[in-house]
Simulated assay, not measured.
Amino acid sequence: MAARVVGRTGRLAAVVRSSAVRLQSRLHGSTGLRSGSQANFFPPLEDAMLPSGSFNNRMALITGGGTGLGRAMTATLSQLGAQCIIASRKLDVLQRTAEEISSQTGNKVHAVQCDVRDPQAVSQCVDQIEALTGLPDVIINNAAGNFVCPSERLSPNAWKTITDIVLNGTAFVTLELGKRLIQNQKGASFLAITTIYAESGSGFVVPSASAKAGVEALYKSLAAEWGRYGHRFNIIQPGPIRTKGAFSRLDPTGAFEKAMIDRIPTGRLGTPAEIANLAAYVSSNYASWMSGAVTPDQWKLLEAMIRKTKGS
């Protein structure tokens, strides 16, 4: 129940995840280790994993970058030398975060207001980003929304709220930036933060599960189509990570956290810094081979084959 990375190295899928949760839960009673002591064997190492300067002279856009995982990823990328742009609806939150991270790392963090649900607002946001820093080298689609609700109580507006932020917002940001990057013949790394249940499904969070699954289909599709333009597309599916915003909505009583810890092989939740290190690696040049890939030569061959079939 750690993070899973969905991408491709060459033409082989690269998947990283923890040991099987079911196996651990079966053995848990016989080991004599409770989750509290078990976690002592797997303490989080939260220092930046990559060498200093790994992101020098690179620009990174992080949506939802003012809080939670977005803030953690911004702090790590800024520490590693990136000039970061954080975007969300709440400009005051963004500005506080930008000032705090800039003062810690010495690298400029820009705050840009953007409602990812609105394609016109996204276009204006990208205009502003181009004027501030130029088009980014790294794009992390992290903006999200979620809540717990029995599906029989879901209203159309509740469904629309989540899918607009998660699926449509990711699509609007990705397509707007992708088109401009292609026009400017500039490559970039795209990363989406989804969730483990995007693949498996999960009760009581159906809008989020559906929207995140859509994001994964979007990224897998564009990885094949836009690799020829120098674009990489990868996905991180985090397991349970304690962040104030998410846990206040999804686990207000703390019961979920207690039940999950007993099923996690390392005996603890993940930390935002651990996901930030993984995101930095996947977005860096150290992972330049990690993406869904169709080479220009492969595309020419596919295109020629498609043309031969027209009218048949």
Results as ranks from 00 to 15, higher is better:
P156Q: 05
F172V: 03
G145Q: 13
C84F: 07
V138K: 01
P150H: 07
N157C: 04
K186R: 14
K179F: 05
D127Y: 05
E152W: 01
A188E: 01
T133C: 04
Q128Y: 03
V205T: 14
I85S: 00
L154M: 11
S210W: 10
I85D: 01
S123E: 15
T174F: 08
A111W: 00
I165E: 10
L154S: 04
A192S: 09
I182M: 10
T170C: 12
V166R: 09
C149A: 02
I182W: 11
D115E: 12
F172H: 13
S202E: 15
I129P: 00
L177P: 01
V166H: 10
A198S: 15
L80Q: 08
C84M: 11
S208Q: 14
D137H: 15
T195R: 13
E152S: 08
N142F: 05
L175W: 12
V112G: 00
I140T: 04
I196T: 06
Q128I: 05
I182F: 09
V138P: 02
D127F: 06
A209T: 00
C84P: 02
C125S: 08
F147E: 05
K160L: 05
A121H: 12
L181A: 04
S208K: 14
G201P: 14
R153H: 05
D115Y: 04
L177T: 04
S189A: 12
S208C: 12
K160I: 03
F204V: 09
Q183W: 11
G187H: 09
I193V: 11
E216Q: 13
V122N: 01
I86Q: 06
L135S: 01
V126W: 00
G187I: 06
V215I: 13
W159N: 09
T174N: 02
E130P: 00
F172W: 03
T105E: 10
Q95I: 15
N142T: 08
Q79Y: 01
Q124V: 06
S155C: 07
L167D: 01
S88M: 11
T161K: 09
P136F: 07
V109T: 01
N157M: 06
Q104D: 05
V173A: 04
E152M: 11
L191S: 11
I101Q: 11
C84N: 06
